[in-house]
Simulated scan of single mutants.
Amino acid sequence: MNALMAAWSAVVAHPLFLIGLTLGVYQLGQALYERTRMALLHPLIVAIALLIPALWLLGLEYPAYRDAVFPLTMLLAPATVALGVPLYHNLRRIRQYFWPVMISLLVGGVFVTVLTILLAWLLGADFPMLMTLAPKSLTTPIAMVVADQLGGMAALAAGFVMYTAVLGALMGPWLLSVTGVTLPSARGMALGLAAHAVGTSRALEESEETGAFAALAMSLMGIGTALLLPLAVTLWLML
């Protein structure tokens, strides 16, 4: 019995076990989503809902899981870059909407960042928490770096990014349809700006053009915020 328990412990502690578990629950979520097309059964939501109790039952702490699945985490950046492929395929279409895209990014980016900080401040959040929440609408790699540079908590920022992405991917298409937004470029801009990578993957399900504008919004939002948000915070602290 002791030998069996020792063998099981060795299997659970092996990094490949947790990588396989992560890929397995995500694939299960993918199969459920493709079969039902229910937003609540999005692969990301299913994976989170299954992984958390699984780790708890296995008695594993998050740091152990994080270290084990680091190879998957490392693929996040190139996967984000790969979203630029539909952007390249629709470059001519994007050029036609240059000024609407720039104005939408400026207004939307400023609004979502300022509103987030303002609401958190009114609810009593301290400065580190404000700086953790500020980059919540950026893709995870950029948000973690920006939050860390601003004095926030990078790990917690990643959690806020995930929450924002899932909520945007779940409610975004429905809200856009209810408000009468049907233009693929406009839907893509909204999903990419508000829900970054997950929103972009959701936009790609609608059409390549929608996905291209979502990838554009996500990329420019990340670049612009990474450059301008630290400057804006510095000026704010000097006042």
Rank of each mutant, 00 (worst) to 15 (best):
G168A: 11
A186H: 07
G159E: 04
A214Y: 03
P128Q: 14
M162I: 15
A215S: 08
G224I: 12
A212L: 01
K136T: 09
A143Q: 02
A147M: 07
G199N: 01
L115N: 04
G222P: 12
L216Q: 08
L130H: 10
G152Q: 01
V181Y: 04
P135K: 14
A203P: 02
F213H: 08
M218Y: 07
V112N: 02
M129R: 09
G159L: 14
L122H: 12
E205K: 09
V166Q: 04
T200C: 00
M131C: 07
W121H: 15
V145I: 15
L191P: 00
L118K: 10
R202I: 00
P135H: 06
T225R: 07
A154F: 03
L167P: 05
I117R: 10
M221E: 15
A125I: 15
L138G: 06
A186G: 01
L138Y: 08
L216H: 09
G188F: 03
V181A: 13
A186K: 04
S201M: 10
G211T: 04
T139V: 10
L115V: 14
L193T: 05
S177T: 13
T225C: 15
G124D: 12
A169E: 09
I142Q: 01
L220E: 11
L170H: 10
L175T: 13
W174T: 13
M144Q: 08
G188Q: 07
M144V: 09
L106V: 00
A169T: 08
A134Y: 10
T164Q: 08
L191W: 06
S185W: 03
A197S: 05
T140R: 05
G109T: 06
T182S: 13
A120P: 12
D148S: 14
R202G: 04
V166S: 11
L123F: 15
V110C: 13
L106I: 04
A125P: 07
M102I: 01
P141W: 14
A154K: 06
G152H: 00
P184R: 09
T139S: 13
V145R: 14
L220V: 14
S104Y: 01
P135A: 12
G211M: 13
S185N: 03
V161R: 07
A158V: 02
E208T: 05
S104P: 00
G211I: 08
G199C: 03
T179Y: 15
A157E: 03
L175G: 09
L191H: 02
E209H: 03
M171E: 08
A186V: 05
T164L: 10
G172S: 14
A214T: 02
G109N: 04
G152A: 01
A194I: 11
A147W: 09
T140G: 01
L175Q: 12
M171Q: 10
G152K: 01
W174Y: 12
L156M: 06
V178H: 10
A157I: 04
I103F: 00
G224N: 11
E205F: 06
A125V: 14
L118G: 02
H196F: 03
T139H: 04
S177W: 07
M189G: 07
M189A: 05
A203I: 00
P128A: 03
